[in-house]
Computed example of a mutant assay.
Amino acid sequence: MTETAAGQRNAAWDELADREDRIRSLRHLADDELRAKLLDTLREEEAAVGHWLDAGDCFVMSGAGSVHLPICPSMSAFIDRGKAWAPYLDDLERVRDWHGSDNVPPMPALLTRADVEAMSAYKACPVCAPALDHRDKRAGAKGWTVLKAGSLDRRHLGTAFSLPDGSEIGALAKITTVHTLAGTDFRAEFDGLGSPITGPATELMYRN
């Protein structure tokens, strides 16, 4: 997506984000009129979400800070704007509540891959398992990315790693994960380490 297209997309998204103030100004309308206006808003949101999804390589950030695919079941209540708006269309007083903070359903926080990977920390949903650079990325010291050994995959092969205490363990040379009835056998081998790391929860770090 070009920088101009991205700017237009973000401007359109910002306009939709202001819809709560717009809807507050409509609360004096009769039920049928208000419901019709809400349906217009719903259709605008469906078009905006659909346009974003059609662009491809799109992810959703949950309120808890996890990154999901748009098809993740846990995100359907946000992505499906008809489902999101249904409780409000069935209870117009919820929309009219002048002192409420829940007058409209929240929009999904949609991000591109570049948006996600630019974040200093994120956790990928284990259910929909988006193909990101990390499954559990944490912010480390400036210039470093911290992750758990279980997040390693072939994209990290050849990358030089250190332990959190600063000890260098060399480049990642091999990853092996074997699932058996007895459990999972995980091994990450580094060319500067005499023995493999076998704990998926072991924290590692590499320079950004």
Results as ranks from 00 to 15, higher is better:
153 D>N: 15
132 L>C: 03
34 L>I: 05
111 L>F: 15
205 M>D: 00
158 G>T: 00
43 R>D: 11
117 E>Y: 09
137 K>V: 01
5 A>F: 09
36 A>G: 13
9 R>G: 00
159 T>V: 15
62 S>H: 08
67 V>S: 01
164 P>L: 11
25 S>P: 06
50 G>A: 07
171 A>S: 07
118 A>E: 07
197 I>G: 00
93 E>A: 12
199 G>W: 06
3 E>C: 06
90 D>H: 09
146 V>E: 09
27 R>G: 11
50 G>E: 03
155 R>W: 03
28 H>T: 11
73 P>E: 04
11 A>F: 04
203 E>N: 12
57 D>F: 01
194 G>T: 13
170 G>Q: 01
207 R>Y: 06
206 Y>C: 09
98 W>A: 14
92 L>K: 06
136 D>V: 11
186 F>I: 07
108 P>S: 05
44 E>H: 07
134 H>T: 05
199 G>L: 12
35 R>Y: 08
24 R>F: 02
84 A>K: 00
17 A>Q: 11
52 W>I: 09
60 V>K: 00
137 K>L: 13
206 Y>T: 14
95 V>N: 02
82 G>P: 00
200 P>S: 08
127 V>A: 10
130 P>G: 10
200 P>V: 08
140 G>Y: 02
31 D>A: 12
53 L>Y: 03
165 D>M: 09
50 G>D: 08
203 E>M: 13
116 V>D: 06
188 A>T: 10
173 A>S: 15
88 Y>A: 01
105 P>V: 04
136 D>A: 15
50 G>L: 02
42 L>E: 10
79 I>M: 02
168 E>V: 14
75 M>I: 08
67 V>M: 11
30 A>Q: 14
179 H>F: 09
82 G>A: 15
196 P>S: 06
140 G>N: 02
103 N>G: 14
171 A>M: 01
112 T>K: 04
122 Y>G: 01
206 Y>D: 07
119 M>H: 11
53 L>H: 04
166 G>S: 01
43 R>G: 01
6 A>S: 13
166 G>L: 02
182 A>I: 01
107 M>Q: 13
41 T>S: 13
194 G>Y: 04
136 D>R: 14
94 R>L: 11
166 G>V: 01
86 A>L: 14
179 H>N: 12
21 D>N: 14
188 A>W: 10
35 R>D: 14
42 L>W: 01
115 D>R: 07
73 P>Y: 03
193 L>W: 03
113 R>A: 10
150 G>V: 06
163 L>T: 10
161 F>W: 08
80 D>E: 08
132 L>T: 01
